[in-house]
Amino acid sequence: PMGRLFWFGPRYALGMPKAMRPRPGPKAGPKTRRPGLPPDVVSELRHMSRTGKADMAIARLERAVVLLDRGDAPGAAAEAAKAKELAPRAPGVREILGLALYQLERFSEALSEMQAYRRMSGRADQNHIIADCLRSLGRPDRAVPLAEEALASKGVPLAAKAEAVIVASSALADQGKFDQALGMLRRIRTRDDVAGPEVIRVWYVTGSILEQAGRRADALREFRKILRHDPSAFDAAERAAQLA
């Protein structure tokens, strides 16, 4: 989970230069998830929905979460938009609507919803989505301050911090600022013998930026480091073979 609701997988890779887009691995089996929203989101909706509309808003948002988790972003966006009509000031509604719009690559609308979520909730746990929307809209310079805020926020989980750093470093690489991009990636401390999913992603983007910068030997070391932990991660094996 990321934030108070759910994390449905980053799509910001779509905005990366082609060489930096990780390829998805084999599709996982069907997901199982307990139905229902987190209690704090339900409480939020009960207090912030229009009079007499709380139950309907909860049902709409629950449906949006289920659809988004199934990969039905259009359906999720439609349900979340209906929830927004019933509870426009509920941060959780704006968050899910923003995630659905982001999945649909409707970046301007997603940005508006995610900025509303950030303003209403005071949270920085979706800064990576905001940053990538801005990057996709031609404003990559805005990504770094958002990553800095996420890094400095105690309530942001490591996975969200890592994603914010990845977006910011990719934005810097877009501008040819490779040293700054690599410095940003080093803000996520890693150990060669420990590799969770977020660390694998940081290493992958590090390798890609090193390759972009012409540092092929260093890039090869990053991809080989990934392969020691997960031989099937993204297209790391192919990238390593090309660099060897």
Rank of each mutant, 00 (worst) to 15 (best):
M2Y: 11
G3D: 04
F6K: 15
F8T: 11
F8R: 14
G9C: 04
R11S: 09
L14S: 13
M16C: 12
M16S: 13
M16H: 15
A19M: 10
M20R: 11
R21T: 10
R23M: 13
R23E: 15
P24N: 03
G25S: 10
K27Q: 13
K27V: 13
K27C: 10
P30Y: 07
K31V: 04
R33H: 00
R33I: 03
R34Y: 00
G36C: 11
L37E: 00
V42S: 01
H47T: 12
M48A: 12
M48K: 15
R50D: 10
T51D: 13
K53V: 00
D55M: 00
M56I: 07
M56T: 12
A59C: 01
L61E: 04
V66M: 09
P74N: 01
G75Y: 09
A81I: 07
K84M: 11
K84L: 15
A87C: 05
P88G: 06
R89D: 14
A90V: 08
A90L: 09
R94G: 00
E95K: 05
I96N: 06
G98F: 08
Y102P: 03
L104A: 14
M114C: 07
Q115I: 03
Y117M: 07
Y117D: 05
R119Q: 12
R119Y: 08
S121T: 10
S121Q: 07
G122Y: 09
N127K: 07
N127S: 13
N127R: 08
N127Q: 08
H128L: 14
I129D: 13
I130Y: 06
A131V: 02
A131T: 08
D132I: 11
L134D: 06
S136M: 13
L137W: 09
L137R: 12
R139P: 06
P140R: 10
R142A: 15
E148R: 12
E149W: 07
L151R: 02
L151Y: 00
S153W: 00
G155N: 15
V156T: 11
A160V: 01
K161C: 03
S170D: 03
A171V: 02
A171T: 01
Q175F: 06
F178T: 09
D179M: 04
Q180N: 08
G183M: 02
L185H: 00
L185I: 09
R186D: 06
R189C: 05
R191N: 11
D192F: 07
V194A: 13
A195W: 05
A195K: 04
A195I: 08
G196I: 13
E198G: 03
I200Y: 15
R201M: 10
V202T: 05
W203M: 13
V205E: 15
S208L: 15
I209T: 11
L210H: 09
G214I: 06
G214H: 05
A217P: 04
A217Y: 11
D218S: 11
D218A: 13
R221T: 15
E222Y: 12
K225L: 15
F234V: 11
A236G: 02
A237G: 08
E238S: 08
E238C: 01
A241R: 11
